[in-house]
């Protein structure tokens, strides 16, 4: 800043504001970790056929929804009271988007285990099982990189995210292909359920990408496709 006349001290009010913004960020990371835990759990439930844990994944979504509402209210309050601009504004606007992405991902984890419960476990086909296993891992990895971006505020994660998401997309296509090839022996209902499950995993990865891209926006004022 150099030598300037306006006092280079932050006022108490600004300290409080900074604390509030940091609290939002820390809460986003914490909330993201909470959703990530349930996302991973849903993957394990599917690939290890843990039907008795379906209820646990579903139950964990209640606190996720409460946390979402609570954090969203807090962000709105800061927007209203502090009239943020520049990076603060980008951060708070991005926070509302990120909160949505996190909450939706929580819902998708629930959808995954509900679908498994409806199927009463995965079909015994090893190719299908292997593809779903890899898809759940790849999807959770992308989602985790979004949470990691929030924790580190590293804009590069968002820049790389779209490329890294190709793996999940490919696995989803492979799953569709494998299910299509086996649709007669699986039956229509099971085939549709497996399609849906693949779609849920793929969407979770997309939400992770979106979260990381929002971090890029906060830091650089541009989304990765504008850089």
């Amino acid at each position: 800043m150099g030598d300037t006349t306006h006092d280079n001290h932050e006022t108490e009010l600004r300290h409080h504001y900074d604390d509030e913004l940091e609290e939002i960020r820390a809460n986003l990371v914490d909330f993201g970790t909470m959703v990530l835990t349930n996302v991973r759990h849903s993957g394990e439930v599917v690939t290890e056929n843990l039907l008795d844990e379906v209820a646990d994944v579903r139950a964990a979504d209640g606190p996720i929804n409460s946390r979402y509402s609570e954090l969203e209210s807090k962000v709105f309050e800061i927007l209203a009271l502090q009239q943020p601009v520049a990076r603060d504004l980008r951060f708070l606007v991005a926070s509302t988007r990120v909160l949505y992405e996190l909450e939706r991902s929580g819902d998708l984890a629930v959808n995954i285990v509900k679908t498994l419960a409806r199927l009463d476990g995965l079909p015994s086909d090893p190719i299908i099982q292997s593809l779903l296993n890899r898809l759940s891992i790849s999807s959770a990895k992308m989602f985790a990189s979004g949470v990691q971006a929030l924790a580190s505020m590293d804009p590069q994660i968002g820049v790389d995210a779209d490329d890294e998401d190709q793996e999940t997309d490919k696995l989803t296509r492979d799953l569709y292909q494998a299910v299509t090839e086996r649709q007669e022996e699986l039956g229509l209902e099971t085939a549709v359920a497996l399609f849906r499950m693949g779609r849920f995993f793929e969407r979770i990865a997309d939400h992770g990408v979106n979260i990381a891209e929002n971090v890029t926006f906060v830091v650089t004022a541009k989304f990765p496709d504008e850089i």
Binding site: M1, H6, D7, T11, R14, Y17, V85, A86, L89, A221
Partner: peptide
Amino acid sequence: IFTSPQQRETEDYITGRFG
């Protein structure tokens, strides 16, 4: 200026970090 100022000094001023 109010969404993505290029200078740190501008950002500090408009966000009330200094003043």
